[in-house]
Design a protein around this nucleic acid. Sequence first.
DNA 1: AACTAGCTCAACCGCCTGCTC
DNA 2: AGAGCAGGCGGTTGAGCTAGT
Length: 265
Amino acid sequence: MGRSPCCSKEGLNRGAWTASEDKILTDYIKEHGEGSWRNLPKRAGLKRCGKSCRLRWLNYLRPDIKRGNISADEEDLIIRLHQLLGNRWSLIAGRLPGRTDNEIKNYWNTHLSKRVDDCRRKSAAGASKNSKSKQATGGNGNGTFSANVVRTKATRCSKIFINPDLCDMNREAVPPASSKINGLLPAVMSESDTEGTDPISLDFTLDFNVGEFCLSDLLSSDFCDVDELSYGNAFGSSPDQPLGLSFSDEMLKCGFESPVVGSIS
DNA sequence: AACTAGCTCAACCGCCTGCTC
DNA sequence: AGAGCAGGCGGTTGAGCTAGT
């Protein structure tokens, strides 16, 4: 039978958005809120596909969007998160306030992938002497960083059960304030965590299918030395802290899955 | 000045998943 | 249970811009 297209393409504008289209969309969303994308164009009087409206809003018109000038800290975080998550741009974007998945994807493809490839080639050349021992750590040899990529499942999580006891345990395990630099939030922490007053953020763990994610593997993994890319160590991490993320002993003992006991429905 | 190659990034496309009926 | 809908995601495209010749 086949899927019906998201909208009839006939009579619709395509390509770059005009200022007046932007204004119509912005005004409509300010008044009615996001959602119902399929019906939005008709109601707002736009000759655009609903998907196109959604994309335009999310990637360009949203008021909280930060545009251009990706800082070295952000670059560093993108690289680290990409190594951790792979091409899960929406997840990566979720750790960079004000950045969109599309922007990060573009930035990666145009700037970072080449540099990381170069870095990897350098590392590979240097490591070739020790290749036999490295092979045992899981490189896949295809020129990417997939060896340690967490296979996430972008599942929508509508119901969770949070064990309050475990939350208390993790609250005591607040990482040092040095983990937060320039407003960027390391993946496992919310801003409030650094203040040590609010319950630990769970959003990172909720994003993952944690059953497939072995933290110990991650921490012992053989990451590309991001410092080789010469923008410093954004989170002030020590060699003992791969990824620049801070994990307390308690967190390491109980594992990531501990705070979220419940299921994804 | 004209042309070309390379780069950037907004936008599109098709697929996947969750929700609703 | 399963079909259809809606939204979300990642990959790809192509127009516009810039630098080099």
